[in-house]
């Protein structure tokens, strides 16, 4: 019984930690969004790759993952080239206007995990 309770708490804590990566208070993890549109600019740089995407009359800044992780997940620089259409699922920043952190992105029918 106690062991199950410990296991449950551990799982809950680790799930919470995973979803809150870099997200304590500065990303709205309770309300995930999907932003889709053409890529306006693309920076394949550390510590995180970033793209800007025009969607719904706004230009969103979308924070992706470190370049080494992007590459190992198959999302090399050409995947997020300017002009490509991307669909990004993630959390909106509560600090910076029109910025979101992507959990995963889909380009040309292929989905890449960012976390």
């Amino acid at each position: 019984m106690t062991r199950h309770a410990i296991l449950a708490v551990t799982l809950m804590l680790s799930a919470g930690a995973a979803s809150a990566h870099h997200g304590w208070g500065s990303y709205d993890a309770a309300n995930p969004v999907t932003i889709s549109g053409p890529i306006q600019s693309s920076r394949y740089e550390n510590p995180h790759a970033t793209i800007t995407v025009s969607s719904g009359g706004k230009v969103w800044t979308i924070t992706l993952a470190p370049t080494s992780r992007m590459t190992s997940r198959g999302a090399a620089a050409p995947v997020i080239a300017v002009g490509k259409t991307v669909s990004a699922y993630g959390y909106v920043s509560t600090v910076q206007k029109d910025e979101m952190r992507a959990e995963r992105i889909t380009v040309d029918g292929k989905t890449y995990e960012m976390r």
Binding site: N46, P47, S68, T71
Partner: peptide, 13 residues
């Protein structure tokens, strides 16, 4: 150059 290098940022980190 630090941002664009694949190793500089992780090495510094």
């Amino acid at each position: 150059s630090i941002r664009q290098s694949s190793w500089a940022y992780p090495v510094a980190n």
